[in-house]
């Protein structure tokens, strides 16, 4: 389907992710971050929410056509082993720009909210992906 402004507002179903000790350790090791709290798998590194992979609602694109433009995380507190995080993802903007070399590019801005089981906000994410 076309990537256009009709997608704005499309929202995913909520999905719950368990923050696991082993996953934290593997993530910290891949980055090469030696912090003992990460290597013990107790606290998750700041960019750990990227592991909560969810399809972007309504969007089906060949991954080879997608570039990652921007990413933002705002945290209420760090995630910890044992947290259960319920995420909802929503398309908040779609716009077109003409690239210098790549021709027309479509920018899709997706926001994610992660909440604990009581509904308290843990973090917000905002990604801009570029479809070429």
């Amino acid at each position: 389907m076309a990537v256009d402004r009709s997608l704005i507002g499309a929202t995913s179903e909520p999905r719950t992710f368990d923050v696991e000790r082993g996953a934290i350790r593997k993530f910290a090791e891949a980055i090469g971050d030696p912090h003992p709290a990460f290597r013990a798998g107790e606290v998750a590194p700041p960019t750990f929410p990227t592991t909560f992979s969810m399809a972007v609602p309504m969007l089906t694109i060949d991954p080879a056509r997608v570039l990652h433009g921007e990413e933002e995380y705002a945290y209420e507190r760090p995630l910890r082993a044992g947290d259960r995080v319920t995420c909802v993802r929503r398309i908040v903007d779609v716009y077109e720009r003409r690239g210098r070399r790549l021709g027309p590019l479509v920018f899709v801005v997706v926001e994610t909210e992660g909440r604990d089981l009581d509904g308290a906000l843990l973090y917000r994410g905002r990604s801009t992906v570029i479809v070429r």
Binding site: D33, H35, A37, F38, V43, P45, P46, T47, L67, H68, G69, E70, E71, E72, Y73, A74, Y75, R77, P78, R126
Partner: peptide, 16 residues
């Protein structure tokens, strides 16, 4: 985290 510790990061926004 090296500056503020694992509990100290509030926000990070980047462009690639």
């Amino acid at each position: 985290v090296g500056l503020a510790g694992p509990e100290g990061v509030r926000r990070l926004r980047v462009r690639f």
